[in-house]
């Protein structure tokens, strides 16, 4: 009986101490981890689509609420005036959701460009939607053009052998078009 109690007590004490230790480490690294994820996952894409901005894009990010949904919006500024915004939109591809960062010029209502943030497409095929030969299709496009692959009557050159992935990116861009007026309204209001 005595050994039975000792077993429970020792294991509980060990687990509690470990739990506290982990909570401390997690608490002290949390902020840096969020920054690192922004820097390494979103940073390169954000800097690409909002490239002529003069402010720190990662630092000036904003959370904007539209219809009970939080959207992380990156705002690019020139001469201390917001000139462009970028936010993520996603659609189901061949291997899972593809997260696409879409940049908009709010002065001229243009798409400045897109960047792929997350995807799980087939390496060498669908994964090639991340390459600039594909993403450059979307550079400096007005919002009224048909964002579809050529097979579907649009203007986008699909990646060879990866029509499903290319379609998903187009769909994500079209979804972002629906959100754009509302997010723009919020940014201009500020």
């Amino acid at each position: 009986m005595k050994e039975y109690i000792k077993m429970v007590v020792v294991l509980t004490v060990i687990a509690t101490v470990c739990g506290f230790l982990l909570a401390t480490v997690r608490y002290s690294t949390e902020e840096r981890i969020v920054e690192q994820v922004l820097l390494y996952v979103q940073g390169p894409a954000v800097n690409k689509v909002l490239s002529s901005s003069t402010n720190d894009l990662i630092q000036d990010r904003q959370e904007i609420r539209i219809q009970d949904q939080e959207h992380l919006v990156f705002v690019g500024e020139r001469n201390d005036q917001p000139w462009a915004i970028a936010f993520e939109s996603s659609a189901g591809g061949y291997g899972g959701d593809i997260g696409v960062l879409v940049g908009f010029d709010i002065e001229q209502d243009l798409i400045t460009g897109i960047g792929i943030l997350t995807h799980s497409e087939t390496p060498g095929l669908g994964a090639r939607v991340t390459e600039s030969t594909f993403t450059d299709n979307f550079n400096n496009k007005t919002l009224n053009v048909n964002f579809n692959v050529k097979q579907d009557g649009g203007f986008v050159d699909a990646v060879t052998g990866a029509t499903i992935s290319s379609r998903a990116v187009c769909l994500a861009v079209r979804k972002s078009l629906e959100l754009y007026p509302e997010i723009k309204k919020e940014i201009v209001k500020q």
């Binding site: 050994e3 077993m7 470990c18 982990l22 997690r26 690294t29 981890i33 994820v37 390494y40």
Partner: peptide, 29 residues
């Protein structure tokens, strides 16, 4: 106690592994 030694070892090892994971994520992403 002898009977729970493996469980105790795993708890301790797992703790250090998670510490490594968090530190690596924060400093060597």
């Amino acid at each position: 106690p002898k009977k729970v030694r493996i469980a105790s070892y795993i708890v301790i090892i797992a703790t250090f592994v998670v510490i490594v994971e968090l530190v690596m994520q924060a400093f060597f992403y």
